[in-house]
Design a protein around this nucleic acid. Sequence first.
DNA 1: TAACATTTTTACCGGCTGGTCAAATATTCA
DNA 2: TGAATATTTGACCAGCCGGTAAAAATGTTA
Lengths: 239, 239
Amino acid sequence: MRSTIHKAMSDIKKESIPPATQAVASGGGMSPKQKTRIQITNEAKILEAALGVFAQEGFRGATLDRIASAADMSKPNLLYYFKNKEKIHIALLTGLLDIWLAPLSEISATGDPMLEIGGYIKRKLEISREYPRESRLFANEILAGAPHISDFLQTKLKKLVDEKAAILQRWIDNGQLAPCDPRHLLFAIWSTTQHYADFSVQVRLVLGLESEDNSYYGEASQMLETLFLGQLIRTYHCN
Amino acid sequence: MRSTIHKAMSDIKKESIPPATQAVASGGGMSPKQKTRIQITNEAKILEAALGVFAQEGFRGATLDRIASAADMSKPNLLYYFKNKEKIHIALLTGLLDIWLAPLSEISATGDPMLEIGGYIKRKLEISREYPRESRLFANEILAGAPHISDFLQTKLKKLVDEKAAILQRWIDNGQLAPCDPRHLLFAIWSTTQHYADFSVQVRLVLGLESEDNSYYGEASQMLETLFLGQLIRTYHCN
DNA sequence: TAACATTTTTACCGGCTGGTCAAATATTCA
DNA sequence: TGAATATTTGACCAGCCGGTAAAAATGTTA
């Protein structure tokens, strides 16, 4: 279930799970090793640096030299912590997938459709703002054909989507939600929210904002609320 | 013949200034050259091949070797037609931008809001289905920070968006459209429609479809119609 | 067909890329 | 402290990468 490397991500996301299995470094043994203080900080430094590079350049476009330099570290030193380029990439992706799934998981069958969907959109948009690089990393992976996460997509994600789509369908059948394909409703929520991270350059340039200006998220939130909740919920019979 | 990109090739072969004139050879001067039959077919072959590679790997991730091999051509031969890698990329992008702008241009201030917006969504979705590789090429360019098209984004695109947003705003003021930020409404349309091209791998895996199965576009179209037209237009006062 | 222009191929280059290795250095802990 | 261990470094490598040069092959046309 969890890749060994996944642990490394927990450092970056500052949840501290007690260290346990890890056999990344040092050539030989499969024996689980306790992580050193230095190991912890350096792995975090590497992942932090790699996240930016992978997110911008994609897997093939990113280079170890660039990551190492961004991590302020020599390349061989970097490779002392991660056996190869792919291991870094997988570590990042694995750590990301939990963040990705969480908001959808929280949708509850027993809640009010308006609040549940509204909350989901809010959470997704929040993640878009908080983790734009992770979002772009994910986008790059999909654009490249999802070579590392196709299994995740067709098992874990598909299962969760089917599950939540069933809930939405029940709401539709109850007349609490406008009739539509629930899975495509989820796609629409994904795309609109992630757009603000993945296409932030375009958004800013079109809106005439500066490079680090995130002020559009307020308008975005309002727009999405209008779009998805304004009418989609319960008022479809107006027509 | 898929792409309408050929027009971007004006600056490819040497410096061909406005074409059409068949010049008598003059010593030293750069004379505009008529394109050979072979030139035309090979440039098309290269662009066709490069489109797939750039769309999947991004600019840095794509290699001339791979493009050449996809075009069934030796690398030096490829470089006989395009001076370097960037020229190919720019040729593709340039050709793409017209496709990209066209649907938005067609929105008319004098039309019915429902029909205009509905038509725009349909056209965008159509382009997503017809030109998925172009869409991914564009997405890759944005993810990389729009190094080649930031000027386009902040001039031509921004201008067009401002113009069309003004139209939408007038509809809002007239009570024909739910109050919302018009520019963000456009973003929502862009993201939802392009999602089906850019994230098609994910869409297919989650829906359980085969690799080349495009059947989800029907459901997508219906979903977007429900989402954007079902209530956004004119019925916002139901609340 | 011969002269000319276009296209293709072969051979190559310097720098980058992912990655290895062993030696040198720093850290930990009995 | 000093031995054991963990970390860092520099030197290196084979293959890939974008790109060049020039000859060879092919096509065009007078």
